[in-house]
């Protein structure tokens, strides 16, 4: 029985990818549903999607920039601004955690749809990826304007940044695919992931420069626990560093970073796809 299912999954990878393409209208409509439905009935509407990161930026700037006085690394043209430094990493992080969270909830939120209609279920996860990407894109545009205002012209770096944004979307979607089915079989997954995301947020150099971790005294606790090694194995560290290199420092990310980013995206999507197809057949009865 297991064999049958594996064969089924493998044979269908290609046809399912083409199915995604064939279903692009449905995907479009699902995305529109998310986008239109999200802020319906609120007075501020779409403005909320910008207010949230704005509030976070304000909090972190005050707490870590002004009170704890984290020194941001020096950016292009000698700019050293904590808020810009923060945003270059915070916006990608927000997108990542948004997709993972939306993926977790996707199947449960759409239980009725899954139990009563037949369509490609992965589209529900993809629609979260795409709809959040729209907000992400807008936020990044606002950031680009802010960078311009502060004299760091990001225009030349837009293409690689967009590429990196797409890779991040792929990476997050892979995880979301896996977690969306996991959460149906084990409802605890959502709570577990909430904690994991919190840990991951601090384990990723979003609010502080990575130099604080990588350039430490050999006798320090960080060095003895090999925390810097752990950092290397966290793909998000590389994503965040790449975003910062492109937007804040105007440098191409290191080759290692590029490799890790590309490989981890591919691995995440492949794994997510396989896991999803393995377990999504029984979604309608497990929900």
């Amino acid at each position: 029985m297991g064999d049958e299912r594996d064969r089924y999954a493998q044979e269908d990878v290609i046809s399912q990818f083409s199915e995604v393409f064939a279903n692009r209208e449905l995907l479009g409509n699902l995305v529109l549903r998310e986008l239109r439905g999200k802020y319906k009935g609120t007075a501020l509407g779409w403005f909320w999607s910008l207010l949230n990161p704005l509030a976070a930026t304000l909090i972190f700037t005050v707490v870590f920039g002004a009170i704890l006085r984290v020194t941001p690394s020096v950016g292009a043209g000698g700019v050293q601004n904590y808020t810009l430094f923060l945003l270059c990493a915070l916006l990608p992080w927000n997108y990542f955690s948004g997709v993972v969270n939306a993926g977790m909830a996707a199947m449960l939120d759409n239980a009725n749809l899954i139990k009563k209609t037949a369509f490609a279920r992965h589209l529900i996860v993809f629609s979260a990826t795409v709809s959040l990407f729209v907000t992400f894109g807008i936020e990044m545009l606002v950031l680009a304007v802010a960078l311009l205002v502060f004299g760091v012209n990001p225009l030349l770096w837009i293409v690689p940044t967009v590429l990196l944004m797409l890779l991040l979307a792929v990476f997050a979607t892979g995880l979301a695919l896996m977690l969306s089915v996991a959460n149906v079989y084990f409802r605890d997954s959502a709570h577990f992931v909430a904690i994991a995301l919190q840990v991951l947020f601090y384990a990723t150099p979003v609010i502080y420069p990575i130099s604080l971790v990588s350039h430490v005294h050999p006798d320090s606790l960080v060095a003895r626990l090999h925390i810097d090694t752990l950092y290397f194995w966290n793909p998000l560290v590389h994503f965040v560093e790449a975003f910062r290199a492109l937007l804040y420092q105007h440098q191409l990310p290191s080759l290692t970073t590029c490799l890790v980013v590309v490989l981890s995206s591919a691995a995440s999507l492949w794994l997510g796809w396989v896991v999803f197809n393995r377990y999504s057949g029984r979604l309608a009865e497990e929900l």
Partner: peptide, 21 residues
């Protein structure tokens, strides 16, 4: 199944129609 309560009947026709293929 799959109607979004906040959306108009028109939007839901398009949504539901595309879910049904």
């Amino acid at each position: 199944a799959g109607f979004h309560p906040e959306l108009s009947g028109r939007d839901n026709v398009y949504l539901n129609g595309s879910i049904l293929g």
